[in-house]
Design a protein around this nucleic acid. Structure first.
Lengths: 216, 216
DNA sequence: CAATATGAGTGGTCAGACCACTTTCTAAAA
DNA sequence: TTTTAGAAAGTGGTCTGACCACTCATATTG
C-alpha cells in the first residue's frame, strides 16, 4: 500500500550498506547491476536512487569505473543551497546583504582569533596594494579573508553568493580607495573588530555606489 | 562527445522551462512521457532528473496525477542529508557557526531598523514566554527573528541550516533561561544592537552546552 | 621486454512492456 | 431527469533487455 517511492528505500538501504560495510569517502560502492541483484530491484530503480544522491553530491560516478562515495564533505550543502538560491534571482538585494553578512562575520572571527595574525598575510596584501604592475584584486582580498575565517561552509556560501551577485569586485583601485583598504587592514591587524567591521562596511557600500554609477 | 550526465542537462532544461512557462509552486509540470518527447530523450533519463529534483524537495510527484512544483520545503532532503553524511565534527561546527552568523545578522538588522519595533511583536513573545500551558518554542522565537529581518535569502539559508543541525532548539525552558530571553528581548526592543547580540550569543552558547550535556 | 589488442566490467541511455492509481467521461440505472 | 457504476485515458512506478562509450586488467604480439 504505502509502497510507492521504492527508490527512497534504496537510498536508505544504500546508507545502511555504507555504514555496515564501513565504506569510506573515496571508496567504491557496488556496481548498479550488483546492487540491483542484491536488493532485488530493477537497475533503473537503483539508478534513480543513485542519480538523486549524485545530485546531492553524496556520491560520484565515473563511467567505466564505477560509483564512489564523495570525498568532499561540504560540497553537497552548496549544491543544495545554490538550487534554492537560483529560484530567487529577483532579490539581488538579499544576495548582496547576505554576502556582506558572511564577510563581516569572517572579519569578526579573524579579529577575535589569536592565531591568525602574523604569518605576514597582511604585509602580502599591502605589497599587492602598492604593486602598480599587476594591480590589486579586490576579489582575492575578500576571498582570502573568508578563507582565513576557517569556516569552510561560510566560504562556500560566499563563493556562491559572489558569483550570483555578478562580480562586484572588479575595476581599478584608486588612491583614495587604497587608503580605505589600508585602514581596514590596520584595524584587522590590531584586532579591532568593531572598527574593522565599520571600515569594511563603509568600503563595501562605497563600492556599491561606484558600481551603480558605472551602470547608469 | 557528450560529457555524459545527460540527466543534468535535463535538470537545467526543466529549470529553464519552469522559468519561461512561469510555472509556479503547486502547478503541474508536463508528464514524463511528454517531457521525453519534447526533449528528445528516453523516459528513464527524464525520470532520473525528476527523482533527483524530488529528493531535493523541489518537485512533488503523485502517482496517477502528475508531477508538481513543490510548494513547501520537503523534509526528506534534510532527513537524507543528516543521516547520510555529516558525521564530520568540523562540518557540524561550521553549520552551527554559520547558522549563528545569520541569526546575529538578523538581530542587528532588526535593531538598526526603525520600522520594525512596535506592532506588539515583543509583547507576544513575552506572553508566550509566560504561558505555562503551551510552552515557549525557542525555534519559533528565532525563526520569527529571521523573518523580521526581512532578508528572505538569509531566512532560507537559516531554515536549511537549522534543519540540518538537528533541531538545536527543543527542550524545556527553565526559569533562568527565561530571564536570558527576556533580556534579549529588552535589548532588541531598545535597539541596543550590541547588547542584544551579546546576550543572544551567551544564550546560544549556553544552549549548546546544555545539549552536549544531554547527549552524554 | 615493450607495445598493442582483446575482453570483461561499468555507467549512460533507450524502448517497450506491465502495474497501480487518479481523473474524466460515458452509459446504464434510479 | 439525476445519479451512479464502469470503462477509458492518462500518469507515475517498475522491470527487462538491449545497446553504447568508456576504463582497466589481461593476454597477445612484435
Amino acid at each position: 500500500m504505502n509502497q510507492s517511492k521504492r527508490y527512497l528505500d534504496i537510498v536508505r538501504d544504500l546508507r545502511d550498506m555504507i555504514r555496515q560495510e564501513n565504506i569510506r569517502p573515496g571508496d567504491r560502492i557496488p556496481s548498479e547491476r550488483e546492487l540491483a541483484e542484491t536488493l532485488q530491484v530493477g537497475r533503473s530503480t537503483i539508478r534513480e536512487a543513485l542519480r538523486s544522491l549524485e545530485l546531492l553530491g553524496l556520491i560520484e560516478t565515473r563511467r567505466g569505473e564505477g560509483t564512489f562515495l564523495a570525498d568532499h564533505r561540504n560540497n553537497m550543502l552548496v549544491e543544495v543551497l545554490s538550487t534554492f538560491i537560483l529560484q530567487d534571482n529577483q532579490s539581488r538585494k538579499d544576495v548582496r546583504e547576505t554576502r556582506q553578512i558572511h564577510e563581516l562575520a569572517a572579519i569578526e572571527t579573524i579579529c577575535n582569533s589569536e592565531s591568525i595574525s602574523g604569518m605576514g598575510v597582511w604585509d602580502g596584501f599591502r605589497m599587492r596594494l602598492s604593486d602598480e604592475e599587476n594591480g590589486f584584486q579586490r576579489e582575492d582580498f575578500v576571498r582570502e579573508l573568508m578563507v582565513l575565517s576557517g569556516n569552510r561552509l561560510s566560504l562556500k556560501i560566499w563563493v556562491l553568493l559572489h558569483q550570483y551577485s555578478g562580480n562586484p569586485y572588479n575595476g581599478i583601485v584608486s588612491n583614495t580607495e587604497k587608503e580605505q583598504l589600508l585602514s581596514i587592514l590596520a584595524a584587522i591587524e590590531q584586532q579591532q573588530a568593531e572598527k574593522a567591521a565599520h571600515e569594511f562596511k563603509t568600503w563595501s557600500n562605497w563600492l556599491l555606489k561606484e558600481r551603480v554609477r558605472d551602470d547608469s
